[in-house]
Structure formats: C-alpha cells, structure tokens
Design a protein around this nucleic acid. Sequence first.
DNA 1: CGTGCCAGGTGCCAT
DNA 2: ATGGCACTTGGCACG
Lengths: 255, 255
Amino acid sequence: MPVLISPSLDEARKELVVGLEARKLVVMVASCSVEYSGRTGSHLGEGERLVIVKGDGCILVHRGHDYQPVNWQPSGCIIQAHANDGTLVLKAVRPSPLESLTLVVKEIQFLGSFVLQDAAEFILHASEEEMQRAIILQPDMIEPGFKILDFEKKVPPGFVDVYGVDRDGNIVVIEIKKDPAGFPVIKQLLEYLKYLQAPPGRKLRPMIVAPSIAKGSQSTLAKSGIEFKQLTLQKAVEILQKYARSDQQALKSWL
Amino acid sequence: MPVLISPSLDEARKELVVGLEARKLVVMVASCSVEYSGRTGSHLGEGERLVIVKGDGCILVHRGHDYQPVNWQPSGCIIQAHANDGTLVLKAVRPSPLESLTLVVKEIQFLGSFVLQDAAEFILHASEEEMQRAIILQPDMIEPGFKILDFEKKVPPGFVDVYGVDRDGNIVVIEIKKDPAGFPVIKQLLEYLKYLQAPPGRKLRPMIVAPSIAKGSQSTLAKSGIEFKQLTLQKAVEILQKYARSDQQALKSWL
DNA sequence: CGTGCCAGGTGCCAT
DNA sequence: ATGGCACTTGGCACG
C-alpha cells in the first residue's frame, strides 16, 4: 500500500506504472489539465483534482464538488503514463467508440495505490424486474382470474412486459414502471397495441402497472382507454418474500 | 493536507469530522459494509472500498473495478460520522427524495483530506446546441439560399430545432441529432410535421441534420420523404470558431 | 416543488 | 456492432 506525499513527477510515474501493471487501484490528488476527444470533446484548464485509475482500465477525474466526475473513461481502456517536457501525461484510450482522455499533470499532492479485497455481492432490491417477477409469481394480484401467457413478448417497437388473459378471455397487455408513469409510457403502450389483437369477440385491455400516475398524465390516461393498476415496489418485495421458496421453480417453469 | 495511514477508527472519525466541517474533500480506503434505502434499497457486505466525501455533501463508494460507484448519494446530503460499537458509522441522508446511505466501517487503510484549488472552467464542445448554433450562424451550410425563420419553435409534441425557408419559399423543418440518427428521430420529426404547414403552393421539407444515419434506418428514411444533411460535430465546431467573434451578437439578434 | 428532456449518459441483453 | 430499454440514472430548464 505505497503512499507518496508530494512526490516528484517521475516518482509518481514509476509508482503509477507499477500500480497499473498490477491492476491496482491508483488514487491521485494532483494539479492537472484535461482534454477529452471522441463522440464530442471537452477542455478543462489546470486545477487540482482527484484522479482515480482502476485495475479494469477505467479512469475518473473528480473536482472538489459534484457527484459526477468532470471527465472519465469507462472500463476497458488502454491507459499509459509517460513523462513529457516536465509534465506527467496520462492517456486513456477507449477503443470503441474511439475516444481519448488526456491528463497533463503538473504537480502531485498525493498518490497511493491499493489492492482492494472485496468479494461481497451487491444486492439491489426492487426494480422493474422485481415488480415483473411479483406479477408472474402471483398473477391474481392484478385481478382475480388473471393468467399470464407470456412476458417480454416481442412486438416490432419493443417488448411487452407482461402479456396475459383475464377471466373472460380478454387479452391484457401490461407495461410496468417503477416510477410514477407519465406521458411516454402511455405512448409506448399504445404503440405496442397496434401490433397486437385479441381473439374474435374478445378485447385488448392495455394496462399500466406502476406506483402512481404522474399528475399531468391523469387525464390523458383516462382518454386513452388504458387501465391503471397500482403496485408499489414495497408490495412487490413483500410478494417476492412470500414466494421466496417457490420463486426459482416458478420462474424456471417459464424457461 | 493531513494523511493518515491505518489510523484507528477514532482518529479517522476526528479527521473526517474536521474535514467535513471545512468542506474539504475526504478520501478513504476502508473495509466497510453499505446499506442504501430510499427509492429502492441495496445491500453490500463487508469489503475494501474507496470512499469519497466531497465538500458539497455528496458521497461515492467505489469498488476496485467499474466506472460507476457501487453506492452513492448526490450533492446536498447531510453527512454524519459517529462511533458505534467498535465501528465508524457514516450516514448520508438526502432530504428529497428521502434516501439514506449508511456505511459501517470496520478498518481503515488510508484517510486523507484535501483542499482542491480549482478555478478552471469546464468547456464541453459540441452537443446538439453547438450544431444548432453553427446552423444559425451560417444557414447556407444547409444549402445556398436557406434562411432561418425561428428555432426551438414550439409545436404540441415538443420543439422544432430549426425552422426556416429555402430559396423557393418552401418551409424547411430541421431536426438535429449529434449521434447517428435512428428510427426515433424520424418518428419525432414526422410527429412535428402534423402540426406545421407550408404557405399555399409551397412544400414542407422535413430534414434531419446529423453526422450520419443509423444503419437500419436508411430505408425507412428513404420512404419517409425526409431529407438528410450531413453535419459532423467537427464541422460545427469549425464553423463556430470561424464566427467566434460575431457569435454572441448573432445569437443576441435572435433573442 | 413536480414534469419533461438531454447526457460524452452507462450498462445489460437481444438479434 | 446495432437496437431497445432500465437506471437509486443525474442534471437542467420550465410551468
């Protein structure tokens, strides 16, 4: 866990190269300027920033504020460091799309390289997928007698989240949103409907399943003939937990 | 620029509190577990991570790989650090939407706090806006005789990027894309057309201005009656530079 | 405030 | 590679 305080540029370069070689995490606080060129381009004059280079070849340049990095390059880049005219030049090239990020480092306050022991699994609760799984596990939470025919059903403009039939044989077309459903969802669902039809004598019942409807879309929804069924993430998670044991089996039966 | 190597949790807590107080950038490499709860929720077991706390009240938890943080909280959070049962507990609460991120820190490899001197301006070249400005500054780059009537012209479904007239008095409706233009752009433009009409005896000329057309949309475009004019960001930037001096005046004349 | 829209969005998975 | 889409998307502009 080498840590350098106010190293010379050459000391820093050596440690950086060694760290990159070993695929370690390198953290640096340094005065630098940054150029980006690729899908678009950007320029950032000299100033002190936090620079992070990870073992998988991604790089982040953070300023003293803001959640987002001011410049970056995602994983899979080729990263080089070389001395040039009294500066340390860091280059991160992304092959596709071809993009390049260049840092010209003038002075380094701090440079450390770390190996992070981290085998833990990251679990994210609740998402659209979890809501979908809750519906699949317990279809009658939509309404009594509802049966599922398919999910992620392909139609030309995209995929129908859940596709099923009500107790009277009408086709129910469900679009799920984890956030309050707005105008775009209505459009999306209506688009899908163009490519679907109910059996003779039966209806198509488009339905949005979401925690709520966006305020401004209330009336549009009413006019559109689309039904709304409330489902919060909270409730979806409860259903999943209830079915936790049979969960995998129920999903498998669909594969 | 205090830097602590393998500090005790209490030493770290003190430095952290002082750093937060002074709105400094605090960087920490530590073994911790992370819980998030808010719009959804997540759990991450114990492991070594890079933790960044910025002066504006945002926090990032990075693992040894990936461009994205595994957990985070955007700017504007209330961040607290307190000792608890032999651990250091870091809490970041976001007021709206109400969300909370909790780190339980067991051991710290490194903690440093920094003041970043950084007054530079960040300049991002190119975006749809820059392409639009290039067209406004030099309309005949679209074609000789082209004149601009309006931009960001409101129509019910959204805004027309550039609205103008050709040398024959036909109305040109331009939709700009900085990326290869695909299916959605065509649909969007056709949608706008419904709410526009040309003067008697003149035509409506829908036109997409973009660096290229997405592969699969080539034929759809041909059938749609929409014209395509190539404009790369590169060229847009060149035009802007050429007109750099008169830039502001030209734009003002439209306001 | 909520709602809509853009982003160097990123990431995941499909054909 | 390209397309379609979710994301704790974040961010900004606007009613």
